[in-house]
Design a protein around this nucleic acid. Sequence first.
RNA 1: GGUCCCAUCGUCUAGUGGUCUAGGAUAUCGGCCUCUCACGCCGAAGACACGGGUUCGAGUCCCGUUGGGACUGCCA
Length: 493
Amino acid sequence: MEEVRVRFPPSPTGYLHIGGARTAIYNWLFAQKTGGKFVLRIEDTDIERSTEDSIKGILDGLEWLGITWDEGPYFQSAFANDHRRAAQKLVEIGDAYKCFCTQEELEQKREGAKKRKEDYHYDGTCRNLSADEVARLEAEARPYVIRFKVVRGPGGVVFQDAVYGVIEKRYRDIEDFVILRSDGSPLYVLSNAVDDIRDRITHVIRGQDHLANTPKQIMIYEALGEKLPRFAHMPLTLDPQKRKISKRAHGEVVSVQYYRERGFLPWALVNFLVLLGWSTSDNREIFSKEELIEAFSLEGINRANSVFDIRKDDPKFFTDPKAISINAHYLRTIKVEDLLPYVEAEMKAAGSWDPAFGTEKKSWFASTVDLIRSRYHTTKDFVNLGRCYFADDFPIEDKVLRKNILKHENLKLWLPLTADRLEVLEEFRVELIERVIRDLADELDVKAGILINGARAAVTGQAAGPGLFEVLAAVGKERVLKRLREVPKLYEE
RNA sequence: GGUCCCAUCGUCUAGUGGUCUAGGAUAUCGGCCUCUCACGCCGAAGACACGGGUUCGAGUCCCGUUGGGACUGCCA
């Protein structure tokens, strides 16, 4: 059987955005699934808009996501000769022709048609130029483009899309489209097809926005006498207003980089993205890499566009809530060892990493991460909300201070007293800590909750967190005692 | 405007003529757990765009309407 070859051809005009990432993911999954090859091809034909930074951003983004390619990156600009040759060949075999119409002329015709409310197609002025006329115009050094000669007559292009089924387009609805500019550079519709032919692409998996272009590319394939690849168009990702998402209109929130910076686990993003327009019949939503490769199929791709539910002005969510929930799911369920490197990287970036966390304090670090992770949504939370566990200076939330400490005047004495009682513990273990605190509450004749919540506020600065006794054990005796004994100062400010 | 594509809870979706008084996930709300907040568990609310057909029977097939999207460039 023929080897499957798929490709991802981003144009480097901005950083990798989630729509592109999703396309890459689908292609990559299909290659993994079929044992095929995944080719990365940078379509930098539009040199004006292509930048080095952008290329780097795309490669970095894919790498971060764990989307690996087998060939490339190839650069489309390196194959301009192939494209020109193909255009030349099409002219020679009579499937394309030189068109000397100027852009101004065409613009006028377009305008005219628009005024008369007619739909405009190139009128074929140069389609039937005689060889002599062509020679004469060329002798005058008149610039020309090359247009593909679309069949004039009944019938059309018919193809079977793996997602959308049979797609038909009549020839009369397709104009003689330009395949080579007057400066000799190729247009997307040509270069993309020629590159796919050269790269022996067997399956073209791309966004539905290319569906309308596909008949043109099929005509090119056929004119060139090449075997057609299979086409699979995937639905687009829209914003909540149903607009196609774009870096320009939506900014950072649609870039892969944004999720990296906001503390997403790469696989969680992949898992979320793959669900935008694809599903299994059993409706599973969480997949390991192996499971996803196993489960993926072109048949599972949906036809309807999906909405990426950006909650831009929602203080509670910085992106689609489902993306966050999937990230949080991974954060609390993957093996702690697997999570540690991400937390470490995050803390290093924030300057709060202690090298000892990776050596003699490693097991303490791991168990502390494990203790707190179930209520975190991103790896960022470990450096912010988790600061009280990993550093000595940490903020005490105002509201918490008032409600859990200041409100109870006695805590000024009781919390330092708690410290005294804890100090005698030989082993700073959860059960022993709990015993001490509950006994003290009885002795003082207060509800344990008062002492517990007060201690939590003093030790973590937060109202919410794991069980207080676990928290104290994790923070450690020395630091707990210090924090409890500093409580009286809190009353002074 | 023309061509093509699409249409199930707010969002992601299951559903391929009867088992759909439409299932799951997420978000929302309530409860349990509890020292708090999460997690977890239990529960509530929430959708087949509309109208015609076809059929004994339609979310599922057909047509139309409406709505949305893509393409319509010497961008990719």
